[in-house]
Design a protein around this nucleic acid. Structure first.
Lengths: 196, 196
DNA sequence: GACAGGCTAACGAACGTTCATTCGTTACCG
DNA sequence: CGGTAACGAATGAACGTTCGTTAGCCTGTC
């Protein structure tokens, strides 16, 4: 028992440790032994808490998607103005990226490592999330508040922009994450040509 | 020799086949056997044309970065107006993404799979490429042509936007790639608040 | 007859996972 | 309060695969 007493192993700690390693080295580039080592434990011990490596990956992505969806719904609750909706959705997206970089990185890069059944479930949640943003932009165009030739194209641009923030942002930097999120919210409105 | 006569194996064909597979399944998720199978050959035969798996990865990324840099320089040649420069650089970036999706995907996701020495070389080229865009935006802000609070932040947003186009675009679709690239050029000018 | 470029076979290592075992702690019973 | 039964959790060993790579051979072509 050379592990620190203060951190006890559990399903949650295994998943969190794996998430950091998957984000850094990829799913296939991270072994169960790697995960175990960062927890001060042997690989076989992990199976007391998770049923397989795939189980870990699914748990990471499922949790991350649910969190993002809940945050998006909370951000949009009660916001009626379509430009306010796009700003809120974008800020929520960027904040989620900045505050959970490892989980978001795994979600963005390891969909291909999911078993087919698991992949279908995660992709459905991702589509639901992205679809909300697409719908807002379509609404704004229909109402004449946004001015962009191809709304779907703008939606992809907005959704992808957030990744730029993640690869750039360091929590120790000069600006708080809320500041960066506001900036991206403004970018999104500019991209769709909002003239409100 | 059960291989098709029409396609002869060479260093270039091995690298191209590997690129498609790396883009789809990742570097660690693709085996030398996988690459060989798509070429109708045994894994050991690949070593008549490449020296190692890592050699293949480096070749893919080196070629892709050089191509992107050359295209960027060509697009910017003779363009003096700073808003024209940003538009040209963005269109060049998006066109490169749309026309070489597999190579760009590998560049964006497999830097971590490069050996340290190789990684340093590729990252240097990537920084040079991104630095050009950052410099254009900084110029535009200094000249009062662009209006954005944090130029570097806008640069990351513009650079990342192109990825959205890649994951959305299908060559069989309704619009030609040049059309999509122009759209993104306009997005970039909007993001930096260009009021020219 | 030299040679380029396939092939089979084999290697050592690393992989995810299973299993029986052991260990430390807790709970209960006398 | 001492003894012990029971349980959750960590362990080393072993499994069957797969990995990247090497070595040596065989067969067509100039």
């Amino acid at each position: 028992m050379q592990r620190s007493m203060t951190v006890s192993l559990s399903r949650a700690t295994v998943i969190d440790a794996a998430c950091e390693l998957f984000a850094e080295g990829g799913y296939r580039g991270t072994s169960m032994k790697d995960i175990a080592e960062t927890l001060g434990v042997r690989a076989s011990s992990l199976y007391n808490h998770v049923s397989s490596k795939q189980d870990i990956l699914l748990a990471i992505m499922d949790k991350a998607m649910d969190r993002a969806i809940v945050a998006q719904e909370a951000a949009l609750a009660g916001v009626m103005d379509v430009s306010g909706q796009l700003r809120a959705a974008t800020e929520s997206l960027v904040l989620d990226f900045l505050r959970n970089p490892a989980e978001v990185t795994v979600c963005n890069t390891e969909v291909r490592s999911l078993d087919p059944a698991n992949r279908a479930a995660i992709v459905a949640k991702r589509d639901r999330y992205a679809g909300r943003v697409r719908a807002i932009i379509a609404d704004g165009c229909r109402a004449g508040r946004f001015e962009t030739v191809h709304p779907d194209l703008a939606a992809f641009a907005v959704l992808e922009m957030g990744n730029g923030a993640k690869s750039w942002f360091r929590p120790s930097g000069r600006y708080p994450d809320t500041h960066v999120a506001r900036e991206y919210g403004a970018f999104a409105l500019r991209v769709v040509g909002c003239t409100s």
